[in-house]
Simulated assay, not measured.
Amino acid sequence: MNNYETASILNKGMTVYGESVKDVLAAIDLNEAYDYMMDLASRKQPLNQSIIRDLNRLSIAKTHPDWAGVYREPFEIEAAMGDLVDWANENRDRLHRVQYAADLYLKFVSIHPFRDGNGRTVRLLMNLALTEAGYPVINVFPDEKSRNEYMDVLATGRCEKKSQPFEDLIGKYAEKTLLKRIKIL
Results as ranks from 00 to 15, higher is better:
Met1Thr: 02
Asn2His: 05
Asn2Ile: 05
Asn3His: 11
Thr6Ile: 14
Ala7Glu: 13
Ser8Val: 05
Ile9His: 06
Ile9Asn: 06
Asn11Met: 14
Met14Tyr: 15
Met14Lys: 15
Met14Trp: 15
Thr15Glu: 08
Val16Gly: 14
Tyr17Thr: 12
Tyr17Ser: 12
Gly18Gln: 08
Glu19Ile: 05
Glu19Lys: 15
Ser20Asn: 08
Ser20Glu: 13
Val21His: 03
Lys22Gly: 01
Lys22Thr: 07
Lys22Ser: 10
Leu25Phe: 14
Ala27Cys: 06
Ala27Met: 15
Glu32Lys: 12
Ala33Ser: 13
Met37Cys: 12
Met37Asp: 07
Asp39Gly: 02
Leu40Glu: 11
Leu47Pro: 00
Asn48His: 11
Ile51Gln: 08
Ile51Asp: 03
Ile52Tyr: 04
Arg53Asp: 09
Arg53Leu: 07
Leu55Ile: 13
Leu55Cys: 02
Arg57Asp: 04
Arg57His: 11
Leu58Asp: 05
Ile60Met: 12
Lys62Cys: 02
Thr63Lys: 04
His64Trp: 11
Pro65Leu: 06
Pro65Ile: 10
Pro65Ala: 07
Ala68Leu: 11
Tyr71Val: 13
Tyr71Pro: 01
Pro74Cys: 02
Glu76Cys: 04
Glu76Tyr: 10
Glu76Ala: 08
Ile77Glu: 06
Gly82Arg: 07
Val85Arg: 06
Trp87Leu: 01
Trp87Cys: 05
Asn91Trp: 07
Arg92Asn: 03
Arg92Ala: 06
Arg94Trp: 04
Arg94His: 13
Leu95Asp: 04
Val98Lys: 13
Gln99Met: 12
Ala101Leu: 03
Ala102Ser: 12
Leu106Arg: 03
Lys107Val: 07
Ile111Asp: 07
His112Val: 07
His112Lys: 13
Pro113Lys: 12
Asn118Lys: 11
Arg120Val: 10
Arg120His: 12
Asn127Cys: 08
Leu128Phe: 03
Leu128Asp: 05
Thr131Phe: 00
Glu132Val: 10
Glu132Phe: 03
Ala133Thr: 01
Ala133Gly: 04
Gly134Val: 05
Tyr135Asp: 01
Tyr135Met: 03
Val137Ala: 00
Ile138Asp: 00
Ile138Arg: 00
Pro142Trp: 00
Asp143Leu: 01
Arg147Ala: 12
Asn148Ser: 11
Asn148Val: 12
Glu149Asp: 11
Asp152Leu: 05
Leu154Ala: 03
Ala155Lys: 13
Gly157His: 02
Glu160Gln: 09
Glu160Met: 12
Lys162Arg: 14
Ser163Met: 03
Ser163Val: 06
Ser163Ala: 11
Pro165Thr: 02
Glu167Cys: 08
Asp168Ala: 15
Leu169Glu: 02
Leu169Pro: 00
Ile170Arg: 02
Lys172Asp: 07
Lys176Leu: 04
Lys180Val: 10
Ile182Glu: 13
Lys183Gln: 14
Lys183Leu: 14
Lys183Cys: 09
Ile184Ser: 09
Leu185Asp: 09
Leu185Gln: 08
